[in-house]
Design a protein around this nucleic acid. Structure first.
Lengths: 110, 110
DNA sequence: AACTTTAATCGTATTATTGCGATATAGTAA
DNA sequence: TTACTATATCGCAATAATACGATTAAAGTT
């Protein structure tokens, strides 16, 4: 009834789905792309970059923080965000593993 | 107002988010994993594999079909599903591109 | 202390997603 | 035709996600 039956899937399936869901919104993709472009941490200019209200951006940042994909460090009155390298590579590895498998089925072969 | 502001993001951001969202549910991850394991197309045993009702599985398959990630071919009374190789590689390439970028920021560096 | 700045949180409205029983549809078999 | 099988779709209920104005919280500035 609207609740994902998490307990009936493997841990790998749930984890991968969780990470994918985090990437499943253009605002969060944009945030991550912006953080990747920078060599230094981003301190507060994310709201200006995104076409969303401050409250909404903060909410998306919270979600990315919740799964550990980004870090937020208070720096005076603002907050500096950066990609969590360790988690980023973990997500990359999981995706790589899934997509590394060869697709045996080409076109309509059934 | 609950509607994703698609028009304000780049096409790349929207496309990537769309693909990621498709992977953002354990049932759909499980479906794709199952299809990847097989060297031949899967004809109808997906409902038995997943811990979900037939209607729900059909719905998840519909979503994967909608974005072109899988193909469904009618084979008698059943339907054969397989990964769409072309789309699969497109998704892989988009993810690779995003995750190929080096993460300059390590731990708490702000 | 009073004010400013920046970000998080609250409250709420709206839309999307998930799940499934029931039903419809399409093909096969008798 | 009738019955059976497999899948899709409908209709509904419940939960999740998205968005933003308003408010709060924390730190810096005057």
């Amino acid at each position: 009834m609207g609740v994902t039956k998490t307990q009936n899937f493997t841990e790998e399936q749930n984890t991968l789905a969780l990470y994918a869901k985090a990437l499943g919104h253009p605002a969060r993709v944009a945030i991550l792309q912006h953080l990747l472009q920078r060599t230094t941490c981003v301190c507060g200019d994310l709201v200006e970059v995104l076409p969303l209200a401050q409250a909404t951006v903060s909410q998306h940042l919270k979600e990315l923080k919740a799964i550990g994909l980004i870090n937020g460090t208070v720096e005076g009155t603002s907050v500096c965000y950066c990609i969590n390298k360790h988690k980023w590579e973990e997500v990359r590895d999981m995706l790589m593993t899934m997509f590394a498998a060869p697709v045996s089925c080409d076109q309509k072969c059934c």
